[in-house]
Amino acid sequence: MQVPAHFEYEKAASVSHALLLLARYGQDARILAGGHSLIPMMKLRLAQPEALVDINGLTDELRYLRVSGGELRIGALVTHAQLLESELVGQHFAILHDAEQVIADPIVRNWGTIGGSLCQADPSEDLSAAFAALKGSMVVQGRDGSRVVPAREFHTGPYETVVAPGELLTEIRLPIRTGAAGARHGSAYVKVARRVGDWPVGAAGAAIWLSGDTIADAGIGLAAVGARNFAAAPAEEFLRGAPASTQSLRRAGQLAAEHCQPVPDQRGPADYKRHLASELTVRALVTAMRRARTPAAGRP
């Protein structure tokens, strides 16, 4: 029988109350959001927090999707299903709908939250790669105020983030960059999994901004293939100012793969994952570029 060990349970009445509770319980307290990452770990007793601070009631403060200050702002308590269903999200970031379509399964997406997934910090987390591609940022709140952390600095290692004991991830911000006049944007996410609902063997997200026939800017996120910060910075650098050609995208794929350090596991051996880093980067870029060129699909 897989059941969690004992813990103290507290229901937070507000964000400030949650922070107070976190401070009271210290190091061994964990935030409980949807629970779909944490509770299985607790059942396997791989996680044994002494206290859980349940923030599921904080929907007024933490469950929202809105555009503000040129950014899409996603409350940490937004569920995967809400992100997938949001027209606002789809309008700006096709990559997020691509990714959500292949994250876990419809039932898990109903309760699993964006903040929970990011804080679980699984090296195979699709959203970490998608947010890295979009060069988003995370708002982390403590009792002394909040700080904004670039998505690419949010994770400090496998299953580790910058969120310190006593802090709470409250929001994800994604810049809506329409760019200079005429710049066109497209994004996409591509994932290979052993089966529907499984974590990726490898996955790539791409965001691209075109200026005429030149790539003005690009963001590339990678999951499960040992990419530093879930991103492919050298490939992005290469693409900046490069011609919007298949050849450019291919080279970007090569660069992405070269800078990965994949760890073999049951999903695949290292050489295959490295191959996927390249192959899927190219595929994501191709789709992103196609979308940038055909905004008729409802995507700017």
Binding site: V192, V201, P264, D265, Q266, R267, G268, P269, D271, Y272
Partner: peptide, 22 residues
């Protein structure tokens, strides 16, 4: 025939599917 197994077969380096991948 997982994606990895199929890809490795195409590369001419088939996987042993009963043991941990390396």
């Amino acid at each position: 025939l997982t994606p990895a197994s199929v890809w490795r077969a195409i590369q001419g380096r088939p996987l042993r599917t009963d043991l941990a991948a390396s």
